[in-house]
């Protein structure tokens, strides 16, 4: 009697080949993803900066947006009123009716900042001290260097200068300005510069920068 031993049907080899193929596909995909990986855009390089979208409170975001669009008006005003210098807080509030310098319901809800003009010989700007730092910290807007000094005639191209707005925030209970308004002095005194980045929508197929 002939006995033939037949081993049970098995797909051992095929299974191994499939597993190896899957591992290969995953490895290739992983390598491709690593190669194409773009680091988080909002990872800010400097320690003394703060991201406008992710790190500011809602009230601070509102004031920051207002300051950015107020700057061109302030510079244009300074250019038109040659010799008069930068507008006073009263002029910003009553003549130009510029937020966030106005006393209105929005300002009251956003921390009721008290605004003052500041200057250190090199640079000039406006600082708003908050009544409620849990809502919004103190905010400082420094004018572009050529306007911050004495040469206000340079402000003729004011409406183009929006991107030069330099805004700093300080959430200390009693924020104080250092003697000079330079970057290092401000950072040492607890101020952090607000940085804004623009990226076209992630939903777009052909993204602009």
């Amino acid at each position: 009697m002939t006995v033939q031993r037949i081993s049970p049907a098995s797909a051992g080899h095929e299974t191994w080949i499939t597993v190896l193929f899957c591992a290969f596909v995953i490895a290739v995909a992983g390598a491709y993803i690593s190669w194409r990986h773009v680091p988080e855009q909002h990872a800010l390089a400097a320690a003394d900066t703060i991201d406008a979208r992710h790190d500011l409170t809602p009230a601070e975001q509102g004031i920051y947006a207002d300051l950015r669009v107020a700057l061109p008006e302030i510079l244009a005003f300074a250019a038109e009123e040659e010799g008069a210098g930068l507008p006073s807080i009263g002029q910003l509030r009553d003549e130009l009716v510029l937020s966030p310098f106005t006393d209105d319901a929005a300002a009251a809800r956003r921390g009721a900042h008290r605004w003052h003009a500041v200057r250190d010989g090199e640079r000039a700007g406006y600082v708003g001290l908050s009544e409620d730092v849990s809502v919004a910290g103190a905010l400082l807007m420094l004018l572009p260097l050529e306007q911050g000094g004495h040469d206000h005639a340079q402000a003729a191209h004011a409406p183009d200068s929006g991107e030069q707005a330099e805004v700093w925030v300080n959430r200390a209970e009693k924020a104080v300005l250092p003697g000079t308004l330079g970057r290092e002095a401000l950072a040492s005194a607890g101020w952090r510069r607000v940085a804004m980045q623009f990226q076209a929508s992630v939903t777009r197929e052909r993204r602009q920068p």
């Binding site: 947006a65 929006g162 804004m196 623009f198």
Partner: peptide, 8 residues
């Protein structure tokens, strides 16, 4: 929107 502070 290049110069607008955007909200999430």
């Amino acid at each position: 929107n290049a110069a607008v502070p955007l909200l999430g």
